[in-house]
Design a protein around this nucleic acid. Structure first.
Lengths: 111, 111
DNA sequence: ATTATTTATCGTATATTTGCGATAAACAAT
DNA sequence: ATTGTTTATCGCAAATATACGATAAATAAT
């Protein structure tokens, strides 16, 4: 499923898409790398992570498709970095999500 | 993969597990329901969501396994609610994650 | 004991994800 | 033109996820 049906709200589907992008430890690690190094090349990620180049490339593709990162060509390399606009969108989607539910929590008993 | 290898940090794997729990719109919708209704029964969710009872039950099982919700038996029903401790853990994991990366963003150029 | 209600589980089909070797594509340097 | 460097894509196998009908399990009500 590509989360494009009419059965759920667009916001729910968008959040599910972002969550899916974050749902693998390699992709979390890649995003942390990009955050800490500001930008970096695919090869640097391959050197650090314990997975093959083809696999890294595939994860990068998924992250790109989610919108959370972007790549710019600097032949023969590709420089990756976080996509600020979508990053903030995701950040606020998640923030609202946890918050909305947190309200109920703080109203209720704590144990 | 069950995200239990030694190849990634435990924190990254835990975050990936939570993200995976959020990676389907039906599960997002269920969590929103639980948040807004404080607690509710499986049947209420089945009535609201556009998916079969067996499917709802499966999603609830995954959410339970992620630790984000819990169920208590009130025969013949089961009352579901958010699990506050893990909810807050997840909330702060994600918050730190977005924040850590946000720092780099705010240091960098905005376009 | 039978029936009704509610939820979990089983079985199964289909789709998606993950991982990787092999190879292609894009380009720089020679 | 050939070679080297870097990254994407292809093809495949294995594992997971998704969805649902059928059925079981648990229990209340009769």
């Amino acid at each position: 499923m590509a989360y494009t049906s009419t059965d759920y709200e667009e916001e729910e589907m968008q959040m599910a898409r972002y969550a899916k992008a974050l749902s693998h430890p390699a992709r979390i690690a890649i995003l942390k790398l990009l955050a800490s190094m500001d930008t970096c090349f695919c090869g640097e990620i391959v050197d650090i992570l314990p997975i093959a180049q083809a696999t890294v490339s595939q994860h990068l593709k998924e992250l790109k498709e989610s919108g959370l990162i972007q790549g710019s060509i600097e032949p023969p390399k590709i420089r990756y970095c976080i996509e600020p606009e979508n990053w903030e969108k995701a950040q606020s989607l998640f923030s609202d999500f946890w918050q909305q539910t947190f309200i109920s929590q703080s109203n209720g008993r704590k144990a």
